[in-house]
Amino acid sequence: TTESNGAAKSGDEQVTVFHDPENFNVKHPLMHEWTLWFTKPPSGKGDNWNDLLKEVVTFDSVEEFWGVYVSLPLHSHYHLSIQQSLTSANGAINLRVSSKIPEFLFPTDMLIKPPPDKRSAPIDELWLHAMLAAIGETLENNDDDGEVMGVVVNVRKGFYRVGLWTKTVGKSVPGGGEGDVAGGKGRSPEKSKDVLLGLGEKFKEVLKLKDAEVVEFSGHTESAHGGSTRAKAKFTV
């Protein structure tokens, strides 16, 4: 068979992994490249966040995500971030941002306390659902909202935390440009706030939180230090 320019035309047979798991010819692309990072448990001696962070794998299709997910141990020690990429005439240029990731992300961490009888709570399921919402791009309402940068899970004795990382805390950022984009000067504070609040609502839905359970947005001014310097909440949903 000949390949016509990859477009979906009738007569151009598209065989997915569901049609034939061993001999498929199309995969389900993700809108962004995502990188899965493993966070080593801290030693308690003032570790630098960067030293605890290990890049596991980068992927850009639904199939690859599941291949990774089903073969990974310790699901509760990861975070998933968008791989920053720039588009050039030759296609995408990937910027490896391993050591910089914590510096430009502002986690909108939430603290969820499981009931005492459910210490092992469905954290694995919540974490999976958070990742699926991120890679499936269903957290943001518009393609150009541009805030979602990653999701993170953190499990400790007696509590767990699932966080959604956004690009901004609702303000323009240095180098963010002039446009109506996340972090750009052209985006009004009102719109920035609306986008973030919408994200918060959606994230609550993903995590099956009740309306009364409050999610706090807080900017990390020094997130390079592993989250110990959480700023006070900017706003809540």
Binding site: V17, P21, G136
Partner: peptide, 15 residues
């Protein structure tokens, strides 16, 4: 493309 959770979960056994 965007994918809802229910669709994505189906891959768990396929790939």
């Amino acid at each position: 493309l965007r994918y809802n959770k229910e669709f994505l979960l189906q891959f768990q056994r396929a790939f």
